[in-house]
Simulated scan of single mutants.
Amino acid sequence: MNTLLALHDRELSLFRFPKRANETLQAWDAGDEYLINHITEKALPDGQNILILNDNFGALSCWFSEHHTVTMMSDSFISHRGALKNLQRNQCNRVKFLNCLDDIPAKIDLVLMQLPKSNRLLTWQLSKLRASLSADCPVIGVNKAKEIHTSTLDLFEKHLGTTTTSLAKKKHRLVFSHANCSTIHPVAAECEWPVDGEDIVLSNYANVYSGENLDLGARFMLDYLPQVDDLRHIIDLGCGNGILAIKAGQLNPQARITCIDESYMAVESAKKNLERNLGSERNIQVLANNCLDGMKQNSSFLVICNPPFHQQNAITDHIAWQMFCDAKDTLNHDGKLLVVGNRHLDYHIKLERLFGEQQVAIVAENSKFMIIEAIKNNDLKKNDLQKGR
C-alpha cells in the first residue's frame, strides 16, 4: 500500500485514520491527484483563500496549505482527525476545520471539492456555496467519471450555476462551476418524518444515512431491542439519527444513553431526535468520535450497533471490526452487544472469534438481515477466544 504522494518534485507521507498495521487502502485517490495537477498547471498565485470540501484524509489540505490559506469543511470526524494527523506528520501549515453545518467563510477565492456519495449532501453544499460565494469564484469538483451523471451536473446547474466538465483521466473527471444561477432554490436544512408503527418522529440533516426513510436493518432491529428493569447504560454505536437509541430509551426509561457517530450531521440529528422523543430531562450524551475511542472500559451494560460497511467511498469491514472490539472493551462482565447486519457480511463469525462461540447467538434473521447477540465473559481465556470456543 502506497503512503507517499509524489507530484511536482514534492512528497507527502499520507495515512488513513485510524492508522492500521495491515492497511490496504491509500489515503488519497486519482481524483486528488487530478485536482492537484490541474491547479498546478494553472499556476495559481500564492496566498489564495481556498475552501476544500469533503477532503477524505487531508491530502488536498496538506498539499495546498503550503502556499495558501486553507479551510477544510467535512461532515466526517474521521476525515478531520486523519487530516490533522497528516498535517502534523508533514509539518504543514495550519488549516481551519469546519463541519458541514458551519457557515461558508467569507472571501473565498477558490473552492475544491471531492463530490460526496450522497446527493442530499451535495445539494446542501451547492446551495450553501451559491448563497455565500461571489459569482467569479471558481468551484472545481472531482469524482470517478462513472459517478458523474447527467443528474449530477443538473444539480450543479440548478443549485450553483454554469457547469462544464473535463476529459476523464485515470477514470476521474473534473466539474467546473460558478455560483451564478439566476434562480436560488432553497434547500431545507432538515427532512422530518414519522416512523410508521412507532411513537417516534425523526428529523435528519442532509448526510444522515437513510435520512428520508428508515433503513431496513434498523427497522428489523426495533422489534428485538431488550427491555430490562435494571439496565443502567445503553450505547448506540454508529447511531445515525438515533432511532435505535430512542426505541431502547422508550423501553428502558431508567437507562442513561450515549450515542456515537463519526458524522457531525448525524450527531446533531440524534441530539434533536432524542430530546424530542425522550424528553429534555433524560440523561443523554451524543458524541462525534472514532468508534469508542476514549470510553471507559467495563462501563456499559448494552451496546447496540448497526455498523456501516464503507468508509467514504471505500467498501471495507474494518470499521465493523473496530466497533466490535471497542464494544467488547467497554462492556461490563455479562454485558451485551446487539448487532444487525446484512446476512452476507457474516458478522456472527467475527463475533464468535472475539467473544467466543458459546457467547454468540443469532437472535433473529430474515432473508436479508441477521440480528446477533454477543455476551462478554471475562472468565474466557484469550486462547479460548482465538480458537472460537
Rank of each mutant, 00 (worst) to 15 (best):
L331Y: 08
A168S: 14
N289Y: 00
K117S: 09
A288E: 01
K387Y: 02
F77D: 06
P194N: 01
G335Q: 06
M113E: 09
L338H: 09
S76I: 02
D334I: 11
I148Q: 14
C239Q: 10
F355N: 08
S65L: 06
K158S: 15
S13A: 10
K128L: 14
D223C: 07
N377M: 02
C325M: 13
F369Q: 00
D261M: 03
G161C: 14
Y264D: 01
S134W: 14
G47A: 08
T152M: 12
N213K: 11
E373S: 09
H333I: 05
E33P: 08
T316G: 06
Y347C: 11
R20D: 03
N37L: 10
K117C: 10
Q359G: 09
N99I: 05
R89G: 03
A327F: 09
D236K: 10
F309E: 00
A168T: 15
S13R: 08
C305E: 01
A145K: 14
R10H: 08
G238V: 09
L354Y: 08
V208C: 01
K336L: 14
K382I: 04
M72N: 13
D196T: 03
P253W: 05
K107I: 09
H172A: 07
Q91H: 11
F64P: 07
G211E: 01
T164R: 14
V267N: 00
D29G: 03
G47V: 09
C259K: 05
Q250S: 07
P308W: 03
K169S: 13
L237E: 09
K350N: 12
A314L: 11
E147S: 15
C181G: 10
D196E: 09
F324P: 06
R81M: 12
I235T: 12
S134A: 14
A314S: 10
D229T: 13
I257M: 05
P307A: 01
G242D: 09
L202H: 00
L51Q: 11
E11M: 08
E157Q: 15
E190P: 02
I315G: 10
E352S: 13
E157K: 15
E157N: 15
T162H: 15
N377R: 02
R232H: 14
W124Q: 12
N277V: 01
C137W: 14
D9S: 08
F57Q: 12
S76Y: 03
